[in-house]
Design a protein around this nucleic acid. Structure first.
Lengths: 250, 250
DNA sequence: CGCTTAGTTGAGTTCGTTCAACGACTGTGG
DNA sequence: CCACAGTCGTTGAACGAACTCAACTAAGCG
């Protein structure tokens, strides 16, 4: 029940967007910036634990995460859940649903989340008038595909220990470039989330995380995980890293 | 060492493209068709077993599969392999590499494959002059993402039997809409491929396929798998199907 | 004819699961 | 204020799914 943090102004102007200052994101031309400003309809504040998008729904909105953490997941009929990926600042949410019609996964907030809301109807205008932004959208989709490739390799072929190491290294790397580590705390994540990402049971996840802790790679705190040695985790997993220099965002 | 089939003309014109007749693909406007015709540089014939694209390479080409079967995969340093997805007629190959630079997966031919080769340099022209095709590219990337989501759910949360059933149902459904079942034969696939897709060992894959055969769902032949009951496989896996009506292709 | 690749099968082992119980902490209502 | 329920993490024990090892068949190819 964490509540929404400070109330936000109804709309942070894109010109003042705090994410834009990060060296991690590519810069916009004034024209692009202007278009995106008009593309943005408003903002939405979501409570921790709330569902942002639901599998099966049709009227999918298009969002960009301004702040907070969330995750995408799918479930089987009997409740088995698989977390597909995590979303954090700068990530586009709902593209699949917007482009193809029906949502085939759900999205849930891990922490309080702020979203930029975009006009779905203006999407074709984007393609018609701003080819560079259209390219960026394809880029973003291709990036997600690439990340899913690596996750699939992980769940399919890595051992439990390697899998856990990979996941934490991945999250650590993504959060680091976004400079999300102001304090020492980390992911507002439970071991159940990790289990559902790795395709393991909670019990075995717990024992696996203990092993990582014993090796001095992580430390588990109440409601979260602190990364002590991100490099060591990557190495243990045999993972090269995302290798991103700059990426587009909308 | 199956050899390349009949020698192809250097270039099948896009206007005569055999795939275009399939009700599964969306129609082009004359203008789009004309552009794609010029976008296409030529054709490439690949032997069964040959590698089409290699992980780590930078000069990735952009292809569309005209005929034949292949698969995308990644490997860990010690050789463990995970098959990510299969490619067949109408599929775009190499988009990730073209858009983002380096290839992070490899692609290999399962059967003799014919590819349309596209001008990588003209890609920006496509975005600049043909927004509808640009949209299609994003659509295609989003579709791959959606399929990977389902695979991840499968490998992470389905049992071995369900996983195998899902995979075969998936391949069957894709091949069916492409009308690839002229004769009764099926996927030119080995059990090793299936194992590397499901994240299982060959031995256990073999035993799992036996169970499917005992239930009368499939029949394993020399070098391939015949689907006796695609519906039954989907049901066993708890899989809804792809639910595609028409899709774009380039 | 031997060599290789693909599939099959059994035996023993390991990894990960389920079941179960328990402690720590949080929020809620009386 | 305390009692209670709920969530989250932890641990041990027993079980089962999937793995490795190993041996063997059958087919295809040089």
């Amino acid at each position: 029940m964490a509540k929404t943090p400070a109330t936000h102004a109804l709309k942070t102007s894109c010109e003042m967007c705090p994410l834009r200052d990060l060296p991690h994101f590519r810069e916009f031309t004034p024209d692009e910036l202007n278009f995106v400003s008009h593309f943005k309809r408003g903002e939405l504040a979501i409570d921790a634990g709330a569902t942002i998008l639901v599998e099966g729904s049709h009227s999918a909105h298009l969002y960009t995460v301004l702040s907070g953490w969330g995750f995408r997941y799918k479930t089987l009929e009997d409740g088995r859940r698989q977390i597909l990926n995590y979303v954090m600042a700068g990530d586009l949410v709902g593209l699949q649903g917007t482009i193809m019609g029906e949502m085939q996964h759900s999205v849930e907030a891990l922490s309080p989340v702020t979203l930029c809301v975009f006009e779905r109807d203006k999407l074709m205008t984007l393609y018609n008038t701003h080819p560079s932004l259209a390219f960026d959208l394809t880029w973003i989709a291709a990036r997600e595909e690439r990340i899913l490739d690596e996750h699939l390799l992980s769940v399919g072929r890595r051992t439990a220990l390697e899998r856990a190491a990979y996941l934490l290294a991945y999250l650590y790397q993504r959060a680091t470039v976004l400079k999300l580590f102001s304090t020492k705390d980390f992911l507002p994540i439970t071991q159940q989330h990790i289990a559902d990402t790795l395709g393991l049971s909670i019990v075995h996840t717990n024992k696996t995380l203990k092993k990582l802790a014993q090796r001095g790679l992580i430390r588990w705190q109440e409601r979260g995980c602190e990364i002590l040695n991100g490099e060591g985790l990557s190495e243990l997993a045999g993972w090269e890293g995302l290798g991103e220099t700059r990426r587009p965002f909308i």
